[in-house]
Amino acid sequence: MTIGLQIAWMISLPVVMILLVAVVFTGISLKVTARIDRRYGPPIYQPVIDLVKLVSLKTNVSHGVIFDWGLLVAIAGSSVALLMIPMGGIHPLSGSGDLLVILYLMIFASVGLGLSAGASENPNASMGVSRKLMLGLGYEVPFILILLAMMTYHHTTSLVALVAAQRATGVLGALRFPLSAVAAILIMPALQGVRPFDFVTAPQEVASGPMVELGGKYLALMVIEQSLHTAVILSLMVDLFFGGATNLGIFILKMTGLFLFGVLVNAVYPRFRVEQALRYCWRWPTWFALGGLIMAMVTKGG
């Protein structure tokens, strides 16, 4: 990959992913959720209308410098994490050890949101951030065990090498690490922050949590951050368990499949309380992930 092409992808890939998740995926999810509720639902381009509305508002309330920059830090963290992940043969930033960097950058985005929410001085925002960190505490344990299993088996911390290994042997990650894959599917809604794990942004409990003081252009920025985060989670899962793809189209198709799974779970299940979510995350997904790690250690080649 030449330097020019690399820079072009570095700029265009986050934009493509924002448009894909914030417009296409969200529109599909609104319609699918409506049909599950036996409603007609909004038009499929409703997210575009909403974004235009948010940008067109005449007043925007800021709560200081940290309030503005926290959001931008979160967006930057998620964008860089996105560039680290190989997507259908495109990987502008990845080198060796990128799996560890992604783990770090995913927390970096939460920290940015936390800064922004703290500067807004709204008690609901603080509660939302504390709930977000608690949820992180819940899903990080099985998530790190899953990644450890893969790193141990393949003797690498590079995501590119993990995808290449799946393509070379022809065995998908989900088949080679079945227990880890089950654990990953179980914590997917928690990673995405959808129901039953949406107590972070619960409108009825904490008035949408970290987003409570965001309106207009700030809310549009938040939509961008959330769609980048969703894109990071989906593409990471596609790379780890479903073998990546040779081109971007097939990669996006696989992402769509995973996203629809999240939409269906979101439409059907009610919301967990914080302690229920922690109990869930530390019970079944952790046991499955631990089993997957032991299996990987036993079966790995010397």
Binding site: L30, A34, D37, R38, R39, Y40, G41, P42, P43, Q46, I49, D50, V61, N124, P203, Q204, A207, S208, M211, V212, E213, L214, G215, L219
Partner: peptide, 18 residues
């Protein structure tokens, strides 16, 4: 479901800022 105001693009919000 009975009247489905989301057909008109309405969705309930939790905070006056939004």
């Amino acid at each position: 479901a009975p009247y489905d105001a989301s057909r008109f693009g309405m969705g309930p919000m939790a905070s006056p800022r939004q």
